[in-house]
Design a protein around this nucleic acid. Structure first.
Length: 518
RNA sequence: GCGGGUGUAACUCAAUGGUAGAGUACCUGCCUUCCAAGCAGGUUACGUGGGUUCGAUUCCCAUCACCCGCUCCA
């Protein structure tokens, strides 16, 4: 499937528009149009019903977007992991400064260099041959004479101090020691890296009329911390007992990401997050439970399981506080990308907030008569990413009677409009009858009435909106009071009594097979 | 942030140093008894700001947005 076609359809049919488009748009922000808002709302509602209302171990929460800035100190978003980045001046690649050394050790040119002797002659030879190919940006390669003289100087002045591999490569990479100090080279080409720059992780704002350092606050970069900050409130008032979860749906904001791939990476996005609190000994079981449950949720709502996958993080990839993390990924047209992360966060967050707030966030377990800080499993889903995945999955081009057709095959639960109601032609009292049906249906379902143009055209329009069923009043309706129901995916039609059409639609939406298809 | 590409109507695309056409869509009639039919009429565009020029949608510069890559992430 072509992403451009989907973007175009989304705009044409009113699913998703670029934000502030009349002013030229703004990178990384998107608006949901009349159909898009229904789709996204259905996704959030389905998630809420399945994870909160349908369970007896989950409660909801809706906390403020702007919180006391100390929350973000405790979470590590201020200071902690606003990863400084460096760019290579030669090949222009971008690296996390703290990962340069690790990446360097894995690079071909570094390994080749290490395998060479450390004497001037071997190094000069390496620079002239292999180095030229593998690490054209390296100072040693570009300026061997000078670099080798530095090294000789170092050996003469500090003969008793052996040089470790890291320092050694720094010597070979540093052209202007006096000005820059020893630097690490680019893992890709050996070139010199810029000073580490700090990335602006969170959106900053100021609370109150005076904008000074003391009034600085942040738009939340995740909804999770609001749940941790309210853990004690919920435990004290919610009649909840471990194991239990707190769920929240809401907007989050990140400044440092590069917007890409339509709505997939946006600076403002909506999360659907659960923090599930449990006894430390049971945390591994709960982790597995949520990992499987959340995967199945996407399958149940129409994502083909062969486009979905679970990817368990390698130990080296895990955050330092996490003992296990898995990503639920979907095969988008632009690549396999993350829809949801399920993280075993241990007691890290509650402990951090305990430390920074000075409040006891321990939990007293009545059954076991003991006090402990619960461990946390965090299934964190992106609502916009889910919407995009469902759109991609639904987008289908097929052929009906030799004519090409574009259809969004949404799961009925997610479809923005559940049924369209048409008079076959605009005469003989058909519009009046169809409108009466529409009035009745409208109280129970999002439905759409249309009487303009040829019937085929109206069917196709609904196909593009993903409406699962169309109900048509025709000549026969006037004699026997039945209407036709038409199925979006098969284009098959059958008749039902018009008095029972709401009930019939209800059954169809709940998954009852269409007649002739049982 | 960096490198490369793109920017004309709601959508998909043309043409042009002398202010723009098509198809689709949309609106109004007529006609139409089941899958984008037909006829007649109609609405909508050169991303933005500068510059060169008698004159710029076209050339130049900047800016913004989008797409692709490096990187980050829900």
């Amino acid at each position: 499937m072509d992403m451009d076609k989907l973007v175009s359809l989304c705009k044409r049919r009113g699913f998703i528009f670029p934000s502030s488009e009349i002013y030229g748009g703004i990178n990384g922000f998107w608006d949901y149009g009349p159909l898009g808002v229904e789709l996204k709302r259905n996704i959030k509602d389905a998630w809420w019903r399945d994870n909160v209302h349908a369970r007896d171990d989950m409660v909801g929460l809706d906390c403020s977007i702007i919180m006391n800035p100390k929350v973000w100190e405790a979470s590590g978003h201020v200071g902690g992991f606003s990863d400084p980045m460096s760019t290579c001046r030669q090949c222009k690649r971008l690296f996390r400064t703290d990962q340069v050394w690790d990446q360097l050790q894995e690079s071909d040119w570094f390994q080749s260099l290490v395998a060479t002797g450390r004497d001037s002659q071997s190094l000069a030879q390496w620079a002239a041959k292999k180095g030229k190919k593998l690490a054209p940006g390296l100072a040693l390669v570009r300026n061997p004479t000078e670099i080798l003289s530095w090294l000789a100087e170092r050996a003469r002045t500090q003969p008793d101090e052996p040089i470790d591999a890291k320092t050694f490569v720094q010597y070979l990479a540093t052209e202007q020691d006096a000005r820059t100090g020893l630097v690490l080279p680019c893992p890709n080409c050996g070139g010199d890296l810029t000073e580490p720059r700090n990335f602006n992780l969170m959106f900053e704002t100021h609370v109150g009329a005076v904008a000074d350092e003391a009034s600085k606050a942040y738009l939340r970069p995740e909804t999770a911390q609001g749940i941790f900050a309210n853990f004690k409130n919920v435990v004290d008032t919610g009649r909840v007992k471990v194991p239990f979860g707190i769920a929240q749906v809401g907007k989050s904001f990140r400044n440092e990401i590069t917007p890409r791939n339509f709505t997939f990476r946006s600076r403002e996005f909506e999360q659907m997050e659960i923090e599930f609190f449990c006894r430390p000994e049971e945390s591994a079981t709960w982790y597995k439970y949520w990992r499987d449950t959340r995967f199945q949720w996407y399958v149940d709502h129409g994502l083909r399981s062969d486009r979905l996958r679970i990817r368990d993080h390698d130990p080296g990839e895990l955050s330092f506080y996490s003992t296990a993390t898995a990503d639920i990924e979907y095969g988008f047209p632009f690549g396999v990308s993350e829809l949801e992360g399920i993280a075993h966060r241990g007691d890290y967050d509650l402990t951090q907030h305990q430390k920074y707030s000075g409040k006891d966030l321990g939990y007293f377990d009545e059954e076991r008569k003991e006090r402990y800080v619960p461990h946390v499993i965090e299934p964190s889903a992106g609502a916009d990413r889910a919407a995009l995945a469902f759109l991609c999955e639904a987008y289908t081009e097929d052929e009906i009677g030799g004519e090409a057709r574009t259809v969004l095959k949404f799961h009925p639960r997610l479809a923005p409009i559940k049924a369209a109601i048409f008079p076959l032609v605009k005469k003989d009292g058909m519009p009046e009858k169809a409108q009466a049906i529409e009035r009745e249906m409208k109280r129970r379902f999002p439905v759409f009435y249309d009487e303009k143009g040829a019937i085929g055209r109206r069917y196709r329009r609904q196909d593009e909106a993903g409406t699962p069923f169309c109900i048509t009043v025709d000549g026969q309706t006037l004699t026997d009071d039945t209407v036709t129901v038409r199925d979006r995916d098969s284009c098959r039609q059958w008749r039902v009594p018009s008095a029972g059409v709401a009930r019939a639609l209800q059954d169809l939406l709940e998954g009852q097979p269409i007649p002739g298809d049982e």
